[in-house]
């Protein structure tokens, strides 16, 4: 298990990196954290001719948060994003999900943007981006484009990032006030890819009734499956929602497959259980944040 040979590029700046990627075309690959790519190389399941190592481009290790959301640069490690106070304040789902990504040591090296580009439908970060309707900024020589999450995840391990392009950052939008989030998953072992998992976001109105509710499900389709359940929740307080009906609505939309760890049926069932748990958790979180806002208003 040793990687095959490749041409190694260590650009001094983003322009050089894009130049190298442009020249390598479909034989080029970006090396950031390498926590998904290097296992594939070691097993010789991937053999890119050129690796463009961006670990020297510290200008990409940015995490910037403002009222609109959190922008995470291509070299921001999972652990850095997880620990970043302002990112946590603006979009708490990031830290909630990151705690479930593999193990702490992997998070020290792996990057959020790398995880998005890897586009594993079992991974947490793609689901987070999909749930929040975020976007990925793809740069190429002479230009860049922002791709919305719904267009970014194309299939299992397949993203919209084209040869010659590099994902330079991702944007995770903030949620409106009185919103809450949760990420619930079941993995075979702690830290494994989830057998099923659900990210949820809920927004309440001033009377603490649900006015928006969405989930993104992992491991139950070729890409994260986002389902808007606002209608099924029916502008009711969380306690009055028919959660079983909500769960069924999501279960109708997923396409789980069986594998060595779980049957398709179990994944469907589990997704239903986790949809309820995550949405209720998110609703509680939203209620807390609403109460805090109200408290601050009075002060």
């Amino acid at each position: 298990m040793k990687p095959p040979p490749f041409d190694y590029h260590r650009p001094a700046g983003l322009g050089e990196a894009l130049q190298a990627l442009a020249e390598a075309g479909s034989h080029g690959k970006v090396l950031a954290g390498g926590q998904s790519l290097i296992p594939l190389l070691n097993m010789r399941l991937a053999a890119p001719g050129h690796l463009v190592d961006i670990n020297g481009l510290t200008e990409l290790a940015t995490i910037s948060a403002d009222a609109s959301g959190v922008r995470v640069g291509a070299l921001a490690r999972h652990a850095a994003v997880e620990r970043d106070g302002s990112a946590r304040a603006v979009q708490p789902l990031l830290a909630q999900a990151l705690a479930l990504v593999a193990h702490p040591v992997i998070r020290n090296r792996g990057t959020v943007v790398g995880s998005l580009v890897h586009a594993d439908p079992s991974a947490e970060m793609p689901a987070v981006l999909a749930l929040l309707g975020g976007s990925v900024r793809l740069a190429r020589l002479g230009g860049e484009r922002d791709v919305h999450a719904r267009d970014f995840f194309v299939g299992p391990l397949e993203s919209a990032c084209l040869p010659g392009e590099m994902a330079v950052s991702a944007f995770f939008p903030a949620l409106p006030e009185r919103s809450g989030t949760a990420f619930c998953e079941v993995a075979r072992r702690h830290g494994d890819y989830a057998v099923a998992g659900v990210a949820a976001a809920v927004t309440l109105d001033e009377d603490f009734r649900i006015i928006a509710a969405r989930v993104a499900c992992v491991s139950v389709g070729p890409v994260p499956v986002v389902v808007d359940v606002t209608g099924v929740c029916g502008q009711r307080p969380p306690a009055s929602v028919d959660w079983d009906e909500v769960a069924r609505a999501v279960q109708d939309r997923i396409e789980p497959e069986g594998d060595i760890h779980a049957t398709a049926g179990y994944r469907r069932h589990l997704t239903g259980v986790l949809v309820t748990r995550a949405l209720r958790g998110a609703a509680q979180d939203a209620a807390r944040s609403g109460a805090n806002d109200a408290g601050e208003g009075r002060a």
């Binding site: 075979r188 049957t263 179990y266």
Partner: peptide, 10 residues
């Protein structure tokens, strides 16, 4: 596994 137990319950 949990999946096996789920199937057994069913």
């Amino acid at each position: 596994s949990p999946s096996d137990l789920y199937s057994l319950r069913a």
